[in-house]
Design a protein around this nucleic acid. Structure first.
Lengths: 215, 215
DNA sequence: GAGTGGTCTAGACCACCTG
DNA sequence: AGGTGGTCTAGACCACTCA
């Protein structure tokens, strides 16, 4: 069905018409078209019908696992080190990201994840202590905030931003790379239905790191 | 339904059991669970049942549009410049990526995409001339290979790899950034059901570029 | 071999949106 | 106002895979 070419620039098929033409039920057609819509190949609107998008934006699905699993899946040994941990009033840029009021308290954490002894990721994180008060009692010496939050706050929503920057001198030292070396940065914001939970910046040495998405 | 907590680490619900419990049809339960499986929250296998994943890998969906649209959507003016175009025997690393035989011919293209006059993306591309012979007749002076291929070879599969590198001197010059500046790199491989089509490397100045995925 | 998920059918009601 | 997609039901067959 998805091979067939009635795909000129942007046209309008129908839904139960297709069902008749192919001799299948509308439910099936609906599912097929819905999947095509998810892929971005097709646009659907209630009364207007279904339109074949002219220049579809490729839908790439990434799987972003917990760092430890990511490292172990490459067959490397995982190690974690806590560098800094302090409770503080949220700085302005974090207040904005987490929609916190003036004076809102956060737990700031800086830590490193190693693969086979080499720095794999530098993690900088702010946890909203109003939303996750139990973080106050966790020292994050044995478990990384990444992993702890996945266990503690399941099924949260997230927004990811990917970018590239030149390492600051401190970052270069901590990640054991050349001064000014390229870093792959993942910024993550996480929230539940009621609260914003955490903001994180994850820095990967560019030489090492690749993020892959298939189909 | 997705609020309910029978989410201990990893357990096993049933499918038509759930349908009865919630007083809805199995079709509906199936769809719900299938969507949760797509999100990576749940794992399903035929005989074994459905398991709540303990540390789910976040599924982030990216939309990767045609460069021109990406730029125009930011409200910027788009301009495109062809820098180089030559037919050649595929170098080894491209032969591997495109599964080409020795001596397989490709069309190599180097070009730049500008947003409001500033370099936005440096595109380096190899097109498989066996699979897409019509590329031979296209000069790519008026239209970018990116856009041309989306029009010519619709509905192809793709694999994307994201990484960060330091710009080479040439890249820094072409993109008008500092020497050694960080670049956000998208590598793309594209294939149809029968052929590998193209391999591309897309370089974005790290200072400018961000790639965002929501939920 | 038996039970699970994967997929389909035929029919129905509804919300939305456009013309 | 009417037609579209969105979603649901009740029932069915099949393929896979575990025990």
């Amino acid at each position: 069905m998805r091979d067939r070419e009635w795909l000129p620039g942007e046209t309008i098929p129908g839904e139960q018409a297709i069902a008749q033409e192919y001799g299948c039920s509308r439910t099936t057609v609906n599912r097929a078209l819905r999947e095509l819509a998810d892929l971005g190949v097709v646009e659907r609107r209630r009364k207007a019908g279904t339109r074949v998008v002219s220049q579809p934006a490729r839908a790439a699905t990434l799987r972003i696992p917990v760092v430890r699993k990511e490292i172990e899946q490459r067959g490397s040994a995982y190690r974690y080190t806590l560098l800094q941990r302090k409770e503080m009033k949220a700085p302005i840029h974090i207040r904005e990201k987490l929609s916190l009021p003036k004076g809102g308290k956060v737990l700031y954490i800086l830590c490193t994840h190693y693969a086979d002894g080499s720095p794999y990721q530098l993690e900088e994180r702010w946890i909203n202590l109003t939303a996750v008060p139990t973080a106050h009692d966790e020292q994050f010496e044995a478990i990384s905030p990444n992993e702890w939050l996945v266990l503690t706050e399941p099924l949260s929503n997230a927004e990811h931003t990917f970018s590239a920057i030149n390492a600051t001198p401190e970052q270069a030292t901590l990640l054991d790379i050349e001064p000014n070396g390229a870093l792959f940065v993942v910024e993550r914001r996480t929230w539940s239905e009621t609260h914003t939970i955490t903001a994180a910046k994850l820095f990967h040495p560019g030489v090492t790191f690749k993020m892959i998405s298939r189909t």
